[in-house]
Design a protein around this nucleic acid. Structure first.
Ligand SMILES: NC(=O)c1ccc[n+]([C@@H]2O[C@H](COP(=O)([O-])OP(=O)(O)OC[C@H]3O[C@@H](n4cnc5c(N)ncnc54)[C@H](O)[C@@H]3O)[C@@H](O)[C@H]2O)c1
Ligand SMILES: NC(=O)c1ccc[n+]([C@@H]2O[C@H](COP(=O)([O-])OP(=O)(O)OC[C@H]3O[C@@H](n4cnc5c(N)ncnc54)[C@H](O)[C@@H]3O)[C@@H](O)[C@H]2O)c1
Lengths: 258, 258
DNA sequence: AGGCCTTTGTGAACGTGTGCACAAAGGCGA
DNA sequence: TCGCCTTTGTGCACACGTTCACAAAGGCCT
């Protein structure tokens, strides 16, 4: 779901898990930089980023040998090196497609521009939205999508349309030349090789939390678990039953009728 | 970042990676169910969920032996089993704290309620927002946080406040009894053992995309890479230089002056 | 009733990620 | 100048996740 590349092809040596943490380090470093802290040890920086220090050191070691033993890392220098590795020393024009509740919130989000991501255009299919000013920018009609992408050299698209429209929007973005997509719609996108898709899915996150929550609050699954197949079922109104014959194993050991 | 549990302690056998995919399968299955498809093969379901079929089968095998060889999986039955495993057969009251752009969008989001997550309360610190109706619900003041959590038995909190307020809100949520937090603020939260935090961070996702984008568009890092330390630098105005003496290795092999 | 053909469930091999623990580096104070 | 003490960078072992490939299961058609 992350890269879309053939998996054996490692990204010039930097592990994906490391790449995903670099922005975290960068944020922590930026904080230190603002407080004019000149150097940090791996221990301190790791604490600020919420990881353990061995992992941090290993991650940084993929970028190069940028620390000084006995001292730590130079904050400014490391900010620069990580920024460069992440491609943040250049400007990335972005289009947001779909300006409903979420799209509008995204457009208004300050942290967007703060890291080299520039909102090049806001696009929606609803003619009533066309021309509306959001975050100091007029919403344009999706018909202009291709020209906007080409003229601005947009390579990153953000999708905040309903799920039903997401694949179509994706196809158009890709045709126009976009090669990275951040998808907020709860749907699986199909893209050609070489196009990266990342998804943000609120509902999935909540479901994962619910799973762990269930574990924490009184272990054991909820009541209606597969009843032990002992003789004919007492109640025919069991919420849902196995479609046909009894299964071989049902996880809970439970006495099987041999 | 996901669980907060000691790592050796596996969650009653279901791997975390599998848990994270179950909601995906559930969504695909729900779609099939709505179209009254009675059974699916692992191949079909995997395609719908965007994973490969071996992975899907292994994932489902952790739940139990719910398929029929030669036929596939009964859609309704599997929907039920996954829902139960994820804890979606019960209702999860949720509070949203911070009703700015993002919080309001979340409150208005339909996909929230659709899976057993009920928005029990909307809370903000801004007195001007108190009483304002959002998504059919009056915003309440954060002062009421503790009582709202206790009265509604809320165990999941969603944080959509500015980063600066997130830790304080977290502490209060946790004190009041919340044990799962979904954090949208770009900051690292510290929580006691037993509390799960998941974060959604737009900015990190974009940075990861930028990284891969940079790789795709003309490989090799941006121009200003550490210049090969050959003699005295030509331009003193190099954007940023190593703080002190030259490093041992700088990743790019590059000729080192012995 | 029997055999065929599809599809599951899983053992085993492999790849990726994590964390420990320590040798070597190197600044800094004496 | 020398040695000490902190902190990096990394080899190694282990845990976790992914994928392959196939035996066994079991419906279904003849
Ligand atoms: N609101 C949230 O908090 C939230 C959270 C998670 C996921 N999502 C998902 O994000 C997406 C947007 O959510 P929302 O609440 O903003 O929905 P919304 O209905 O408020 O907005 C959707 C917007 O997309 C536009 N649109 C529809 N088809 C389009 C097309 N083909 N091209 C361009 N624009 C098009 C609509 O005109 C509308 O303005 C949905 O898929 C939703 O499931 C939303
Ligand atoms: N808008 C986005 O698309 C977006 C995207 C990613 C991340 N974020 C993050 O989500 C958070 C919210 O973003 P936003 O755009 O909605 O900001 P916002 O400023 O519009 O809203 C923040 C809200 O939080 C309230 N608040 C402040 N302190 C509070 C406290 N102690 N208790 C309760 N409420 C408090 C404020 O009154 C305000 O209503 C921020 O941390 C932001 O970085 C936003």
């Amino acid at each position: 779901m992350a890269t879309g590349r053939s998996h054996t092809e490692r990204t010039r040596g930097i592990p994906e898990a490391t790449v995903a943490r670099l922005p975290l380090y960068l944020r922590a470093l930026t904080g230190l930089s603002e407080r004019s802290v000149p150097t940090v040890s791996s221990e301190e920086l790791a604490a600020a980023a919420g990881v353990n220090s061995a992992k941090l050191r290993k991650d940084l070691s993929y970028l190069g040998s940028y620390g000084t033993r006995g001292v730590g890392y130079d904050v400014e220098y490391l900010v620069y090196q990580i920024s460069r590795e992440l491609g943040l020393t250049q400007d990335w024009p972005v289009v947001i497609v779909g300006l409903g509740n979420l799209g509008a919130a995204l457009a208004n989000y300050g942290g967007f521009a703060s890291r080299g991501f520039r909102v090049a255009a806001l696009m929606d299919a609803d003619p009533k939205l066309t021309g509306k000013m959001i975050a100091g920018q007029a919403v344009r009609h999706v018909d202009e999508l291709e020209s906007v992408v080409r003229e601005n050299g947009v390579s990153i698209g953000v999708i905040a349309t309903p799920a039903g429209a997401a694949q179509e929007v994706t196809d158009r973005l890709v045709d126009a030349g976009v090669t990275s997509i951040l998808n907020f719609a709860p749907t699986v996108l199909t893209v050609p090789e070489g196009v990266d898709v990342r998804k943000v899915d609120l509902s999935i996150e909540l479901q994962i939390l619910a799973f762990h929550e269930q574990r924490k609050a009184g272990d054991g699954l909820p009541p209606d678990a597969e009843p032990p197949a002992s003789g004919p079922g007492i109640s025919g109104a069991m919420v849902r039953r196995r479609p046909s014959s009894a299964p071989k194993s049902d996880r809970e050991p439970g006495v099987q009728p041999a």
